[in-house]
């Protein structure tokens, strides 16, 4: 299963990089989304997917063992990453809108000069 997910991640990265290298700024943003999802998956996979129990401590127990459940640490990391991804996505979208409104183009090659017309 790890092999399958690893290949899936590789595919996501390939698509993401290809999108990043497009000249259209919309595709660039899609690329950022894809890559951030792929990165979350890497973190998730690094905790190991051999155990699929939920990471809670049972009602009677006082402590849990990692033997039976998914590693909680990567989950905590990803959880914040997702929400931050949401904030960043909104920011990029606003930036893109502003950029298009100001320059009237969505071609990144036209952005190569910092001076405003």
């Amino acid at each position: 299963m790890e092999l399958v997910i690893a290949i899936f991640i590789g595919l996501l990265y390939a698509s993401g990089v290809y999108l990043l290298l497009r000249r259209s700024i919309v595709k660039l943003i899609l690329g950022v989304f894809v890559i951030s999802n792929a990165t979350n998956l890497i973190i998730f996979l690094s905790g190991g997917i051999t155990r699929s129990g939920v990471s809670f401590i049972g009602d009677e127990a006082e402590k849990a063992s990692l033997e039976t459940m998914t590693d909680p640490l990567p989950q905590a990391l990803i959880l914040t990453a997702i929400v931050i991804g949401l904030g960043i996505a909104a920011y990029i979208l606003a930036l893109k809108y502003k950029y298009f409104e100001t320059t009237g183009t969505h071609d990144l090659d036209q952005l190569s000069k910092t001076d405003q017309k």
Binding site: A6, I7, G10, Y13, A14, S15, V17, L45, G47, L73
Partner: peptide
């Protein structure tokens, strides 16, 4: 893009066999 993707796959696979520290989990 394909090269980067392949690289990432390799990294993910390899990462499972590298255990530098005892996990804090």
């Amino acid at each position: 893009a394909l090269a980067v993707g392949a690289m990432m796959t390799m990294v993910v696979l390899k990462a499972r066999f590298i255990n530098m520290e005892e996990p804090i989990s």
